[in-house]
Nucleic acid binder design. Structure first.
Lengths: 344, 344
DNA sequence: ATTAGCACTCGCACACCTAGAGTGCTAACG
DNA sequence: CGTTAGCACTCTAGGTGTGCGAGTGCTAAT
């Protein structure tokens, strides 16, 4: 729907006032809006119209107007102007990321923490998705007479380990043989390829020896499967409880949602590349019906990889959140790229 | 302070009623208490006395009595009877733990989740403390021309990784040399021994080559230092927001506390072996002033290692929490022992 | 199309009231 | 001297009533 210029101006003014203060605004206060030189009665007419069209609503008859979810959507799609981030903020983000320790997981965790801190709401960050990830290397470390640890390193620099036990004594030579054989056939394979058929073929090609170590092969499979899933880090979730435009039920709902890995992962995996905004009922999950999600994917090796996201009430400073998230995502991606020497 | 038998009976009855219902109880309802055959007037006298002595208090004049923190303390120390866990519950715990994947971190995380689920409040579980932990093995995996990953495996089965980069091309032979040298001098060392002096001595003994790799040695040190710290897993923290005897401020405080790793670790590291209960102001941290913590240490290789703890309002089913935590801690310890083959 | 004026609506804050629960005190009892 | 019955008292929760202020929608004039 195309709105007349004056209506757009009024809609933007209502939304920006509401985002800033959390209070409804009425026709009188709107007269002070820059470049809106009409009487309050005119504004009242426009407000009534915007309300009928579904962009605005009144909490109750004698209150001012606040945006509906539809209003926010229109604002996000048509009215909001992308803000340019202050250089100091950019430098702050870069420094914080650089001073986190040199493990990809740490960097990603820190990225989430920065987002939460700067945007002032709960933030999520995920390790890269496994789709483009391959097995980099598998290592064995003996831990006991019958037990050993398997360490899987993926092409995106993630590490997973598994303990397994055998019925017979493990010798270093044996581990060496397995080390060589496994890496020969697995290194470079996509993680998703390491499934039961693959492992069974591998074991078969190994003859009798292969049959001896079902536990080890299960461990390999397990580790690959787990690496295929992403780790999700949550930051600043208590901030939700301080947002006064968020009632306890909704805030609790979001917290509940965040701690339920199934529904959380379902949301996250559905987010496309670039920057995405879900407002209110646009979220498929019931618990997020009163919340907004702003998410963006960072890239590793020029491929969309993991996510940076913030989540809060629908009353959200969308322009700011988008700018900060995109900045963090960019730095995070290039920092990990650098560490993995993907960009030589 | 020694209390007369009848006073003890009344105190226990008040506390147990309050734990069960969350409601204050008055003299009349207390007459129904098993084995208390006196009039309500007599009970009123006793209640007044217990109130003066500080065991009980009234939310307001016309309400019944509820326990004070001091009352809870007396109950926990003198009155509460240890409950024997139902066999089905025990089996449930064991099965849940056995079906978690074979990585110590997973088991510990699951243990926390079970505790939260069965006790119905937030739970914490930690990986073993580093005090008795030694370096088991260090592995190198090349990730790029100038970058490599270091994987540290500790004697308690934990894995830490670090990426590092060098100014020159890394060769497999070089990594092999370092692998051998590092493991020769580090394997079996307590993690705490791997500090800067140690690393410098090591580098010096290596001559020129040692000077070439400051980043690698820093990575080793970092990884050891990080392994010295414990990982803390939180489960069911949203449950705090559903406890109706917990006002929003207190619940939020606890959540805040749980997400602040510094103060959280400070609490956890101060907990002795065995089972410990902190009630209200006994907690050193301000944010826990209205909460209770029940914690117990599990053992690995017969040494007190990590923690299982639950946290909630002071209105707490202490006997149940103690019984369940101790059961979980025991199974967790022996399961990890078994995986690490410490008990052959 | 815009504006001034005005009656109207509604939520909030506050005061007020009542019912019910539980108490402490007093005096009587064994 | 401990125990008990009786009673006046206190306090909270919850319901009702009222005035204020903000903001609206409508109408008639420009």
């Amino acid at each position: 729907m195309k709105l007349a210029l004056r209506k757009q101006k009024i809609l933007a003014a209502v939304i920006e006032h509401y985002i800033a203060t959390g209070e409804p605004i009425g026709s009188k206060s709107l007269q002070n809006t820059e470049g809106l030189d009409v009487s309050s009665a005119t504004i009242r007419n426009e407000l009534a119209d915007l309300t009928v069209k579904g962009f605005l609503k009144q909490p109750h008859t004698s209150a001012g107007r606040i945006p509906t979810e539809y209003g926010y959507r229109y604002y996000v799609d048509n009215l909001m102007e992308p803000i340019k981030l202050d250089d100091r903020v950019k430098r702050y983000i870069e420094n914080r990321l650089l001073s986190s320790s040199d493990a990809p997981e740490h960097i990603i965790k820190t990225a989430g923490a920065i987002a939460s801190e700067l945007i002032g709401t709960a933030a999520l960050s995920t390790t890269p998705t496994g789709d483009n990830t391959r097995v980099h290397r598998i290592k064995f470390v003996q831990t006991g007479r019958h037990t050993s640890m398997l360490v899987l390193i993926t092409s995106s620099g993630m590490v997973k380990s598994r303990l397994f036990r055998c019925d017979f004594d493990i010798t270093p030579e044996m581990l060496n043989v397995f080390d060589r054989a496994l890496n020969e056939s697995l290194a470079g394979q996509p993680l998703s390829a390491v499934n039961r058929p693959f492992v069974q073929t591998f074991a078969a090609s190994f003859g009798e020896l292969g049959l001896l170590m079902p536990d080890m092969l299960t461990a390999v499979m397990d580790a690959c499967k787990e690496s295929l899933g992403t780790n999700v880090y949550t930051s600043g979730s208590t901030k939700l409880l301080y947002q006064n435009d968020f009632d306890l039920i909704s805030a609790r709902g979001v917290l509940e949602f965040l701690s339920d890995s199934d529904s959380r992962d379902k949301l996250l995996s559905g987010i496309p590349e670039g920057t995405t905004i879900y407002i209110g009922k646009e979220n498929s999950h019931v618990l997020l019906r009163h919340s907004a999600v702003v998410a963006t994917r960072y890239e590793i090796d020029n491929h969309p990889a993991g996510l940076m996201a913030v989540i809060g009430s629908t009353r959200f400073d969308y322009p700011k959140a988008v700018a900060i998230l995109e900045c963090i995502a960019e730095y995070t991606g290039s920092l990990i790229d650098e560490l993995l020497s993907v960009r030589q």
